[in-house]
Design a protein around this nucleic acid. Structure first.
Length: 125
DNA sequence: GCAATGACGCTCT
DNA sequence: CAGAGCGCCATTG
Protein backbone atom coordinates (compact mmCIF):
# COMPACT_ATOMS: atom_id res chain seq x y z
CA UNK A 1 0.00 0.00 0.00
CA UNK A 2 1.34 3.28 -1.01
CA UNK A 3 -0.58 5.53 1.35
CA UNK A 4 -4.35 5.67 1.65
CA UNK A 5 -4.63 4.33 5.22
CA UNK A 6 -7.41 6.11 7.08
CA UNK A 7 -9.99 6.22 4.31
CA UNK A 8 -9.31 2.66 3.31
CA UNK A 9 -9.31 1.40 6.85
CA UNK A 10 -12.71 2.91 7.42
CA UNK A 11 -14.10 1.18 4.38
CA UNK A 12 -12.51 -2.11 5.28
CA UNK A 13 -13.90 -1.89 8.80
CA UNK A 14 -17.39 -1.35 7.44
CA UNK A 15 -17.11 -4.23 5.00
CA UNK A 16 -16.09 -6.48 7.86
CA UNK A 17 -19.34 -5.63 9.61
CA UNK A 18 -21.43 -7.03 6.81
CA UNK A 19 -23.27 -10.07 8.18
CA UNK A 20 -22.78 -13.35 6.38
CA UNK A 21 -25.40 -14.33 3.87
CA UNK A 22 -26.14 -10.68 3.16
CA UNK A 23 -24.97 -8.20 0.58
CA UNK A 24 -24.71 -4.43 0.59
CA UNK A 25 -24.03 -1.71 -1.89
CA UNK A 26 -20.98 0.51 -2.24
CA UNK A 27 -23.11 3.49 -1.37
CA UNK A 28 -24.17 1.93 1.92
CA UNK A 29 -20.60 1.05 2.81
CA UNK A 30 -19.52 4.56 1.93
CA UNK A 31 -22.18 6.05 4.19
CA UNK A 32 -21.30 3.83 7.10
CA UNK A 33 -17.68 4.71 6.55
CA UNK A 34 -18.41 8.38 6.73
CA UNK A 35 -17.86 8.83 3.00
CA UNK A 36 -21.35 9.88 2.06
CA UNK A 37 -21.79 9.95 -1.66
CA UNK A 38 -18.29 8.65 -2.28
CA UNK A 39 -19.20 5.15 -3.29
CA UNK A 40 -16.39 5.28 -5.82
CA UNK A 41 -13.81 5.44 -3.12
CA UNK A 42 -15.21 2.22 -1.70
CA UNK A 43 -14.74 0.48 -5.00
CA UNK A 44 -11.32 2.02 -5.27
CA UNK A 45 -10.37 0.73 -1.86
CA UNK A 46 -11.60 -2.74 -2.67
CA UNK A 47 -9.70 -2.68 -5.92
CA UNK A 48 -6.57 -2.24 -3.86
CA UNK A 49 -7.29 -5.55 -2.18
CA UNK A 50 -5.53 -8.66 -3.28
CA UNK A 51 -5.70 -12.41 -2.96
CA UNK A 52 -5.81 -13.74 0.56
CA UNK A 53 -7.82 -10.86 1.90
CA UNK A 54 -9.86 -11.53 5.00
CA UNK A 55 -12.39 -8.96 3.89
CA UNK A 56 -15.78 -10.19 2.66
CA UNK A 57 -15.52 -7.93 -0.39
CA UNK A 58 -17.73 -10.33 -2.29
CA UNK A 59 -20.65 -9.11 -0.19
CA UNK A 60 -20.22 -5.64 -1.58
CA UNK A 61 -22.06 -5.05 -4.83
CA UNK A 62 -23.36 -2.00 -6.64
CA UNK A 63 -26.76 -0.39 -6.10
CA UNK A 64 -28.08 -2.14 -9.17
CA UNK A 65 -27.68 -5.43 -7.39
CA UNK A 66 -25.01 -6.54 -9.78
CA UNK A 67 -21.54 -7.91 -9.23
CA UNK A 68 -19.24 -5.09 -10.18
CA UNK A 69 -16.46 -7.46 -11.02
CA UNK A 70 -18.55 -8.57 -13.97
CA UNK A 71 -18.37 -5.02 -15.14
CA UNK A 72 -14.61 -5.06 -15.40
CA UNK A 73 -14.64 -8.62 -16.72
CA UNK A 74 -12.33 -9.78 -13.97
CA UNK A 75 -11.68 -13.43 -13.29
CA UNK A 76 -12.47 -12.68 -9.66
CA UNK A 77 -16.08 -12.18 -10.72
CA UNK A 78 -16.56 -15.90 -10.70
CA UNK A 79 -15.05 -16.13 -7.24
CA UNK A 80 -17.47 -13.58 -5.91
CA UNK A 81 -20.36 -15.52 -7.36
CA UNK A 82 -19.22 -18.76 -5.83
CA UNK A 83 -18.65 -17.20 -2.44
CA UNK A 84 -22.10 -15.60 -2.41
CA UNK A 85 -23.78 -18.78 -3.48
CA UNK A 86 -21.93 -20.61 -0.73
CA UNK A 87 -23.37 -18.18 1.80
CA UNK A 88 -26.86 -18.78 0.53
CA UNK A 89 -27.10 -15.72 -1.69
CA UNK A 90 -28.65 -16.60 -5.00
CA UNK A 91 -27.04 -14.83 -7.89
CA UNK A 92 -28.96 -14.39 -11.12
CA UNK A 93 -27.56 -15.61 -14.42
CA UNK A 94 -26.79 -12.04 -15.32
CA UNK A 95 -24.83 -11.65 -12.11
CA UNK A 96 -27.70 -9.94 -10.36
CA UNK A 97 -28.68 -10.30 -6.71
CA UNK A 98 -32.01 -9.46 -5.12
CA UNK A 99 -31.12 -6.52 -2.95
CA UNK A 100 -34.67 -6.54 -1.67
CA UNK A 101 -33.95 -10.00 -0.26
CA UNK A 102 -30.30 -9.96 0.76
CA UNK A 103 -29.74 -6.24 0.91
CA UNK A 104 -28.18 -5.25 4.23
CA UNK A 105 -29.14 -1.80 5.41
CA UNK A 106 -28.79 0.33 8.49
CA UNK A 107 -31.27 2.85 9.82
CA UNK A 108 -28.90 5.35 11.37
CA UNK A 109 -27.15 6.58 8.29
CA UNK A 110 -27.15 9.92 6.49
CA UNK A 111 -28.85 9.97 3.14
CA UNK A 112 -26.67 10.59 0.13
CA UNK A 113 -29.64 11.96 -1.76
CA UNK A 114 -29.36 15.13 0.24
CA UNK A 115 -26.12 15.93 -1.46
CA UNK A 116 -27.34 14.90 -4.88
CA UNK A 117 -30.38 17.07 -4.63
CA UNK A 118 -28.43 20.14 -3.62
CA UNK A 119 -26.08 19.52 -6.55
CA UNK A 120 -28.31 20.11 -9.51
CA UNK A 121 -31.75 18.80 -8.83
CA UNK A 122 -34.62 21.21 -9.28
CA UNK A 123 -37.65 19.06 -8.57
CA UNK A 124 -38.10 19.92 -4.93
CA UNK A 125 -40.99 18.56 -2.98
C1' DG B 1 0.93 20.08 -9.80
C1' DC B 2 -2.30 18.89 -13.69
C1' DA B 3 -4.93 15.44 -16.44
C1' DA B 4 -7.06 11.14 -16.75
C1' DT B 5 -9.15 7.16 -14.52
C1' DG B 6 -12.43 4.46 -11.79
C1' DA B 7 -14.96 -2.86 -8.16
C1' DC B 8 -20.35 3.81 -8.08
C1' DG B 9 -25.03 6.33 -7.29
C1' DC B 10 -29.12 8.50 -8.81
C1' DT B 11 -32.54 10.35 -12.15
C1' DC B 12 -34.51 10.55 -16.58
C1' DT B 13 -35.63 8.45 -21.14
C1' DC C 1 -35.87 -3.74 -17.07
C1' DA C 2 -32.20 -1.50 -19.81
C1' DG C 3 -29.55 2.35 -21.43
C1' DA C 4 -27.64 7.12 -21.24
C1' DG C 5 -26.29 11.36 -18.78
C1' DC C 6 -24.32 13.89 -14.84
C1' DG C 7 -21.95 14.37 -10.41
C1' DC C 8 -18.23 13.43 -6.50
C1' DC C 9 -13.67 12.76 -5.21
C1' DA C 10 -9.33 10.12 -3.97
C1' DT C 11 -5.55 7.58 -6.30
C1' DT C 12 -2.33 7.24 -10.05
C1' DG C 13 0.61 8.53 -14.15
Amino acid sequence: MTKASTSYERIYATVRKIPRGRVTTYGTVARLSGLVGQARLVGYALSALRDGTSLPWHRVINAQGRLSLERVASSAGLTQRIRLDREGVKVDAGGRVSLARYGWRLANAPSERTRTQAAGDSRVT
